[in-house]
């Protein structure tokens, strides 16, 4: 890691804070996935991993390679845009699958049509 000596101080400080914040946020998101009591609360745990945690790590990676190679390295923007565009679709499809499965399991098909909004966690 000899080439790391060329990193200026301000960039190193920014990188350290971004990495520590990102790592902690990722850990908290996974912790929420593990220990929240029911599924509809659990789905909010990974959301912070995907947005803030991944954002911090991606910005840190961009900054690191830009400073290290002293040219503009921006291709992590591709991953950022891709993740920001696909993570909403994934969470929407998963929660919709969960809602439909719960409706079917409880034989309450009318829940979708009549708009009496489904309230599952109390029934468990």
């Amino acid at each position: 890691m000899n080439e790391m000596e060329t990193i200026p101080l301000w960039a190193a400080a920014l990188l350290v804070s971004l990495l520590i914040l990102g790592g902690s946020i990722i850990l908290i998101g996974a912790l929420g996935l593990m220990r929240l009591p029911d599924f509809y609360q659990r789905i909010h745990g990974p959301a912070i991993t995907v947005t803030l945690g991944a954002g911090c790590v991606l910005i840190a990676s961009m900054l690191y390679f830009t400073v290290l190679q002293s040219r503009l390295v921006l291709h992590e923007l591709l991953i950022t845009v891709f993740v920001l565009m696909t993570a909403p679709i994934v969470s929407m499809l998963i929660i919709r699958a969960a809602v439909y499965r719960d409706l079917r399991a409880r034989k309450r098909d009318s829940g979708v049509e009549s708009g009496g909004i489904y309230r599952f966690p109390e029934q468990e």
Partner: peptide, 15 residues
Amino acid sequence: AAHDRVLALDTLWMC
């Protein structure tokens, strides 16, 4: 439930 596992798998991919 199965959707819990799918959610965990998705987070695993992201990690």
